[in-house]
Design a protein around this nucleic acid. Structure first.
Lengths: 223, 223
DNA sequence: TTGCATTTCAAACACTTGTATGAAACTATC
DNA sequence: GATAGTTTCATACAAGTGTTTGAAATGCAA
């Protein structure tokens, strides 16, 4: 059995560099330099640059999806097969937001890499990404169980908007900070999640307060 | 005065190619081939590839911003200096959505180019893009006039979410179509705009129906 | 037409990219 | 300890990039 410390060093360095600087301007030479290995090691261990990216993406993709589904399943079991809509949405956007935002960006490399992958859309990733709809369908199903009276199309749009707010918040966090002169606290990840979930719930329920007391719907104007 | 048909041919070809395929994989040779001009013409007329991109971006940027501000000003004048919040948001997201979505993608090249620019974040654009916050501040000011009781931070988040939904809808329109098996009609641009505006208004007003009858807040389940 | 500035063109330049090669170093089995 | 398989390494390669060059072509005033 081969010692794969070179392999993992390449994977770690590549993920960090891609997360920080994007796929566009990270070369194989940058990666091997950061990993402290030889240039030819990438092609030896992975075959090509694209296969390296693909392996990176599939690994993180199933990890993120599992994290989401675990939260979803926990919420559904607690509710006896029918989770509250806000819990479903929290399971959808929570993992990514917690991974990408907040002060502890140390182990957030994976999440930041996934955001890069969702933004830049490089060929090897685009091919894989089509399976993601199957993953999202599970959330649509859970939402349908939670809101059986809502129309199908509204559910799709609600899920779409929830992802929109989550991803856009991650991508444009600095612009929001500058626009608001720092008044929008982007380190308060829990607060951001609640904000996005609250808006998504309103989008899905038409603004009328539902069965739950809707605790977090009030404006939070810290600082 | 020089005949600038070569210049404009380059600009048109570059904008179309960038809009269609992104900055990443469009070379100068692709551009000059599409424009039917010589390779050296780009450097002769623009100095460098980055300056070509920058000129493209600033031109479209001020055009889009003007379109937005015209709608905003019209709404504010109609309301005697204080526009309804939904009119403000419509002025913010309407122009871009109308340009990028819908069946007539012929003259939407400009809007699609702007979306590319907002996604890929290539260096020459990133430098210019910082001025956009000044443009957005005008919308924050209008929102403050329209909703004087709302907290500052809520206004920023509301504007942020509105842009999030608009941009994400443009970027991931095909995924939404596939996820919903075509049930989400992405050719109904006016309906999409109203949907986004409605959710944004709810995000800003906390879900309670305000002074206006909130006409469009009901779910639309066409098809 | 002559002369001069502007614009076009083919060709080459310098550089970076991902990939391939073949020898060297290493590892573990017999 | 010899040998076969695996891994590393320096180096080279082919292709593609933006840019530059200097001459040819063009347009336009005197």
């Amino acid at each position: 059995m081969p010692s794969d410390q070179t392999r993992t060093a390449i994977l770690a360095a590549a993920e960090r560099l891609y997360a920080d600087r994007g796929f566009g301007d990270v070369t194989l030479r940058d990666i091997v330099a950061a990993a402290g290995v030889n240039l030819a090691a990438v092609n030896y261990h992975f075959g090509s640059k694209d296969e390296l990216i693909a392996e990176l993406f599939v690994t993180r993709s199933i990890a993120t999806n599992r994290e989401r589904l675990n939260e979803l399943k926990a919420a559904e079991e607690k509710g006896g097969g029918r989770a509250d809509i806000d819990a479903i949405l929290r399971a959808l956007v929570g993992p990514t937001l917690r991974g990408c935002l907040g002060p502890d960006r140390e182990r957030s490399t994976a999440a930041r890499f996934m955001i890069r992958a969702s933004i830049e859309s490089v060929p090897p990733i685009r091919r894989i990404k089509n399976r993601e709809v199957d993953h999202l369908r599970k959330f649509v199903a859970a939402m349908r169980r939670s809101l059986p009276d809502r129309g199908e199309v509204d559910l799709y749009w609600g899920l779409h908007f929830a992802l929109a707010m989550a991803h856009h918040t991650i991508r444009e966090s600095e612009r929001l900070a500058r626009l608001s002169d720092g008044k929008c606290d982007l380190n308060d990840v829990a607060g951001i999640i609640e904000r996005i979930v609250a808006v998504s719930v309103m989008a899905l329920t038409g603004g009328a307060a539902e069965k739950k007391p809707a605790a977090k719907l009030v404006a939070r104007d810290a600082r």
